Simulated scan of single mutants.
Amino acid sequence: MRLEGGSALSLRRWWRSAGFARAGIAHAYRTQPNFRIEVWAGTLACAVALALRAPLAPVALACALVLGLELVNTALEAVVDLASPELHPLAKVAKDAAAGAVLVASGGAVVVALAVLLPPLLRVLGF
C-alpha cells in the first residue's frame, strides 16, 4: 500500500475519507435524536451481552445495521430536502421508505436481542 499520492490504496486518502465518515457520524449524533437513542441502546445491548457472556457478534451486527441505516436515512433526508425544498409526494415516499428501513432493522435487532440475551438473562434471574 502506498502511503502518499492519489492512489486508491493511499493511506493518506483513506485517512481523509475516514475523517469525512467521522464527520457524518458526528453530525448525525448532534442533530438526530433517534440516532443518539440508537447509539445508547446499542451500547447497552452490547454491554449486557458482555456481562451475560452471551454471543456478542449477532448483537453488535444488529446494532451496526440499525445505526448504518439511520445514517443512510439521515443522508437521504438531506438530499431530498436539497433537491425538493417544497413538499412533494415522491419526496415523502423516499423519506418514509428510508425511515421504514430503519424501523424494520430495529425490529430485527429486538428479535436478535430477545433470542440472544433473554435465555442467559433468565438463567441469571433463576428462571
Rank of each mutant, 00 (worst) to 15 (best):
A113C: 12
A26F: 07
V93P: 03
G19I: 05
A115Y: 06
L71Q: 06
L69W: 06
C63K: 01
V110P: 01
L76Y: 02
A99C: 11
A91T: 08
N73Y: 10
G68A: 10
A41I: 08
G19C: 06
G108F: 10
G100V: 08
L87S: 12
V116N: 11
L103G: 01
Y29D: 12
V59D: 01
V39C: 08
L103V: 01
L61P: 08
G19Q: 08
H88I: 01
S84W: 02
L103S: 01
P89G: 01
L71M: 14
V80S: 02
A101D: 13
I37T: 05
F20S: 08
P89F: 00
P33S: 02
R30H: 09
A28W: 10
A97E: 10
N34Y: 09
A21Y: 02
A83V: 11
L67D: 03
V39N: 10
V48T: 09
V80F: 07
R53W: 04
N73G: 12
H88V: 00
H27R: 13
A109S: 09
A109I: 03
E38K: 15
V111S: 14
A54V: 07
L56W: 01
A57Q: 10
R53P: 00
V104D: 02
L82P: 00
A47D: 00
S17R: 05
A113R: 05
G24K: 08
A64E: 10
L82C: 01
P55K: 11
V93N: 03
L103D: 11
V39S: 04
D96L: 03
R22P: 05
A62C: 14
V116P: 09
V80P: 00
I37E: 04
A75S: 12
T43R: 12
G68K: 06
A75P: 09
A28K: 14
N34M: 13
L71F: 06
G24V: 04
P89M: 07
V110E: 03
G68Q: 00
C46G: 13
L56Y: 00
V112I: 05
A28H: 05
L114G: 10
L56V: 04
A60Y: 11
A49M: 09
V66F: 03
A64M: 15
V48Y: 11
T43P: 02
R53L: 12
A47Y: 02
F35D: 03
S84G: 02
Y29L: 08
D96E: 06
K95A: 03
T43L: 02
A94W: 14
L52Y: 05
G24W: 04
V110I: 05
E86I: 00
V59F: 03
